[in-house]
Amino acid sequence: MPPLLHIEWNVDPVLFDLGPVQVHWYGLLFTTGFFLGYLIVQRMFVWEDKPLRDLEPLFFYVIGGAVIGARLGHIVFYNLTYYVLNPIEIFYVHQGGLASHGGGIGIIIALYLYARSRRDQPFLWITDRVVVPTILAGMFIRIGNVFNSELYGLPADVPWAFVFEQVDAVPRHPVQLYEALAYGLIFVTLFLVYRLYVLKRAQQGEAQHGLLSGLFLVLVFTARFGLEFFKAPVSDLVEVLPIDMGQLLSLPAVLLGLWLLWRVKGR
């Protein structure tokens, strides 16, 4: 039998090396995602006549909440023992190791703190705006995972399977790209709902806070739940349950999203 078609992947995660400073693909893509997110939120503030001076503190709240939450989520949910034994590596964010569930929790806490002092930007108002660029940043982060040869999928015999040579010689599902594609589609969906419905309602003084936040939670974590079936396990939970940690953490997020959508519909 001829060998199965697959894609050999052996890209150096370091884009270029400046001696004491290394620029990683992951870091570049992470920064690009959040920079584009900043520009999107800036346009939202202009369209809705919100003070642009609030963008800088909002940006730092979101970045801080996302990075700290995602890093702590990865450590606590997936690899606590390793980081207890190697505490210095907690700070190696540039090498990857960010959990989207933890990042979501971190952003929620950060936005709650941000909204407390701004009456014109209630908590659900600001979350509805921030979730749109957040999922775009998530798409770039998943592409960064490909460059880091991490969060790869299970062995596969599909023609587009990747062999991550820095891991092993096994063709695998490029589940990072599956997830990046899903996030890109969700971003387009949320942005269109914002432009065609939420923005118009807001300009008419008939805003329904929570719609985009609910859609975000339902769409993103339903996609995450399904794609986890293609992903190599990163926790030991699959040894005792038919689902892994990522799927378990996705369930409450989907339920919260459904509750937000029900709340909006009721109003």
Rank of each mutant, 00 (worst) to 15 (best):
Q208S: 11
R142Y: 04
G138S: 10
L154E: 11
Q176F: 01
F229S: 12
L52D: 08
Y26V: 00
K200Y: 03
V198M: 04
R118A: 04
H101F: 14
L18H: 00
L85S: 14
F77V: 01
H74T: 08
V158N: 07
V198N: 00
K200H: 14
A156W: 09
R43V: 13
D168Q: 06
R172N: 07
S213L: 14
R43Y: 12
R53T: 14
A137Q: 04
A207T: 12
L39W: 11
R118T: 04
L217G: 00
M139H: 05
A169G: 09
E89N: 08
A137Y: 09
F59N: 01
F35I: 15
Y61L: 00
P122A: 05
W25L: 04
W9Q: 10
Q22S: 13
F60C: 03
M44H: 14
K50P: 00
V188A: 14
I135V: 15
L113E: 03
V84Q: 10
D54P: 01
P2D: 13
G64Q: 07
S235G: 09
R119H: 09
P20K: 09
G96N: 09
H209C: 01
A115K: 02
R129A: 04
E89D: 12
L15S: 05
L251S: 07
F123C: 02
V11A: 06
Y78C: 06
A202I: 13
G153K: 00
L5M: 14
Y83V: 05
G153V: 09
G69T: 08
V158H: 02
H173T: 11
T81Y: 08
I141C: 06
L258Y: 07
P242G: 02
F91H: 01
L196R: 12
G144H: 03
I243V: 15
I141T: 02
W9E: 09
I143Y: 09
M44P: 05
R71C: 10
S235F: 05
L72T: 11
P159R: 11
F35C: 12
N86W: 05
G33R: 13
G65T: 06
L256W: 08
L217F: 15
V188F: 15
G214Y: 00
D49H: 15
G103I: 05
G33D: 08
H209D: 15
V193A: 00
K200P: 05
G104Y: 01
I40E: 06
L196K: 13
I88P: 08
G96A: 10
F230D: 04
G246Y: 06
S149D: 04
V170R: 02
A253C: 14
A161C: 11
E8A: 11
I88F: 13
L248C: 04
D49A: 14
Y78P: 00
G138F: 06
H209L: 12
L124N: 05
Q176K: 07
F230T: 11
H209Q: 14
E8V: 10
Y112N: 02
L256I: 15
F221Q: 00
L227C: 09
L190I: 09
L72R: 10
